[in-house]
């Protein structure tokens, strides 16, 4: 909408008060961090075993997988899409790799990880093709593929679990070993953050993802191929899910048909908490990681605070709802303040 905007501030025309919520927008990451610290302190007071090295490492490894997926999901959300299939992709990749290593104990861990990523990439390519080339709505395409991948997982597993005793130690070691005293899982996550950071802020393609999400029409005029970008983000998401499948199975030393069922919701929650806009175009890596950390802490802290684990879903749902509604309220506040400053 074209509206006049005066250069001079015009406080005299302000009939109503400016929205205070709007100032929240500027301090989003800081606010999230402060909240995490407050939460940690609160939990620590209730239960001193919270901030022990053991528990913190446990929390960090749990959060590692969540945050890797959240990085991929952020890119999908930035393009105005959504991917509900990641839990299923993760399970399928985990199950297939677990079957391979249990049948062939000399299979190297690195090869296992690469196989997992490969399976994930294939899964992601299918979704990317559906969304970008055929034009199926992301929610429909990923809902359908979620079931197909989940069904495949049950089919190849024949309903049986693969447990730790069937897996070679080297494979379980992927998630439990450490390099330079730091858990491998955490290292992998750090590596993913660093590459993602470089990719989204220092390469053309990375910025094009944001351009497509911010204004697809302009992107077309600029000559950016929306199809290629969509294909890319769903493929990346698939690859990361495949990677996490291997990590998950290695960490929990078990692969089953319903592995990570519903996990996509926690991932989306982490992104929304981290300030990724559902309307596309914006989302910061730092925010998303903080969002994942917050969800990770909540999951870990509830049992420590003697809250029944059955409250977890309810709390998660409330958090997502409050976070998205608050986002909107903040945005409206910003817009309202813009209007108030306009001189008429």
């Amino acid at each position: 909408m074209a509206v006049h905007t005066a250069n001079a501030p015009a406080a005299e025309t302000a009939v109503k008060k400016e929205s205070k919520l709007a100032s929240l927008a500027r301090f989003r990451e800081m606010g999230l961090l402060a909240f995490i610290i407050l939460l940690a302190v609160g939990v620590q007071i209730r239960n001193p075993s919270f901030l022990t090295v053991e528990n913190v490492v446990d929390m960090a490894t749990n959060t590692a997988i969540l945050s890797i997926l959240a990085v991929g999901m952020m890119l999908v959300l930035v393009t105005r899409g959504i991917d509900l299939s990641i839990g299923a992709t993760l399970a399928l990749s985990g199950m297939l790799v677990a079957q391979i290593v249990s049948a062939n104990s000399s299979f190297s861990p690195l090869l296992a990880v690469l196989t997992g990523i490969g399976i994930g990439i294939i899964c992601g390519l299918v979704i990317g093709g559906l969304v970008s080339w055929i034009g199926v709505l992301p929610i429909i395409a990923t809902l359908a593929m979620m079931n197909i991948y989940r069904g495949f997982t049950y089919m190849v597993s024949d309903g049986k679990w693969i447990s730790s005793y069937q897996m070679p130690e080297s494979f379980v070691g992927i998630a439990t070993s450490s390099v330079f005293g730091i858990n491998t899982l955490i290292l992998i996550a750090l590596f993913i953050y660093a590459s993602a950071y470089y990719f989204i802020s220092h390469t053309r393609t990375g910025r094009q993802i944001y351009a497509v999400g911010s204004n697809p029409e302009s992107a077309k005029i600029t000559g950016i191929s929306e199809k290629k970008i969509l294909m890319l983000v769903y493929t990346l998401m698939g690859g990361l899910s495949g990677l996490c499948g291997v990590l998950w199975v290695s960490k929990f030393a078990s692969a089953q048909g319903d592995t990570a069922s519903g996990y996509e919701l926690s991932v989306i929650a982490a992104c929304i908490l981290g300030g990724v806009s559902i309307a596309g175009g914006s989302g910061k890596l730092g925010g998303v990681i903080l969002g994942a950390v917050l969800i990770g802490i909540l999951n870990n802290a509830l049992p420590l605070m003697n809250v029944s684990p059955f409250w977890q879903k309810g709390i998660e749902g409330t958090i997502i709802l409050v976070a998205v509604l608050l986002n909107v309220a903040v945005k409206r506040g910003v817009e309202r303040n813009h209007l108030l400053r306009r001189r008429i």
Binding site: R207, Y210, A211, G213, S214, N215, E217, S218, I221, S277, G281, S282
Partner: peptide, 10 residues
């Protein structure tokens, strides 16, 4: 026709 979420430079 611009990208409202991106910086001026971009």
């Amino acid at each position: 026709t611009n990208y409202p979420d991106l910086s001026v430079t971009e």
